[in-house]
Amino acid sequence: MAFVPQYFRVVRAEVIRVKAEPFVDAARVIGTGTWRIMFRHVLRNSVRTLPLIFTINASEAILTLAGLGFLGFGIEPNSAAEWGYDLNRAVADVTSGLWWTAIPPGLAIVLTVLGTTLLGESLTDLADPRLRRRGGPTATATGTDGGADDD
Rank of each mutant, 00 (worst) to 15 (best):
F70I: 05
P77C: 07
Y7V: 15
A58Q: 09
V110P: 00
R28A: 10
P137G: 12
R17T: 08
I103Y: 03
L118E: 11
L43K: 07
G69S: 06
I37N: 04
F3A: 15
V29Y: 09
G135M: 02
T140A: 13
T117W: 03
T142D: 13
A80E: 10
A27T: 03
R130D: 02
A81P: 14
V4S: 13
I103W: 05
A80S: 12
L131S: 07
A92C: 00
P5K: 00
A80N: 07
M1K: 09
R132H: 10
E121I: 12
G147I: 06
A141S: 15
T138F: 01
I62H: 00
I109C: 03
D128T: 02
P137C: 07
A80Y: 05
G135T: 00
G120Y: 00
A27E: 06
T116L: 15
R36I: 06
A90Y: 03
F73K: 10
L50E: 05
L50Y: 05
I62F: 04
D86N: 11
L126F: 06
Y85I: 02
P77A: 04
T124C: 02
D145L: 11
I16F: 13
T32Y: 05
I75M: 08
I103A: 08
D93T: 06
T117P: 04
K19F: 08
G67V: 00
V91T: 13
G67R: 01
L52S: 08
V94D: 00
A92H: 08
L114F: 15
L43I: 14
G147Y: 06
R40A: 12
I30W: 07
P77I: 06
D25K: 09
S59F: 09
F70Y: 14
E21L: 00
V47I: 12
A27S: 12
A139H: 04
G31H: 08
T34M: 11
R12L: 11
G74D: 01
G135E: 07
A66R: 01
T32P: 02
D86R: 14
I56D: 06
A80M: 10
L126D: 03
S122V: 12
A92E: 12
R17S: 12
T142E: 10
D25E: 15
V29M: 09
E82H: 11
D128C: 01
G115N: 03
I53M: 13
P104M: 08
L71T: 04
I62A: 01
R36G: 10
L123W: 04
D128W: 00
N78V: 14
R36E: 14
L114P: 04
T55E: 05
G74W: 03
A20F: 02
H41P: 03
G143R: 01
A61L: 14
V94T: 07
D86S: 14
T144N: 07
G143E: 00
E82W: 06
E121P: 02
L98D: 13
P105L: 04
G31T: 03
I109A: 04
N88A: 15
Q6R: 10
W35C: 09
L126C: 09
A81Q: 14
V94E: 02
L52P: 01
L71F: 09
L65S: 13
V113Y: 05
F54T: 11
V29L: 15
L43E: 12
R9I: 14
G136I: 06
G120E: 01
I53G: 01
I56C: 08
L107E: 02
Y7D: 07
W99L: 13
V110L: 15
A81T: 14
T112C: 09
W83Y: 07
R44M: 01
R9T: 10
L50A: 02
R40P: 05
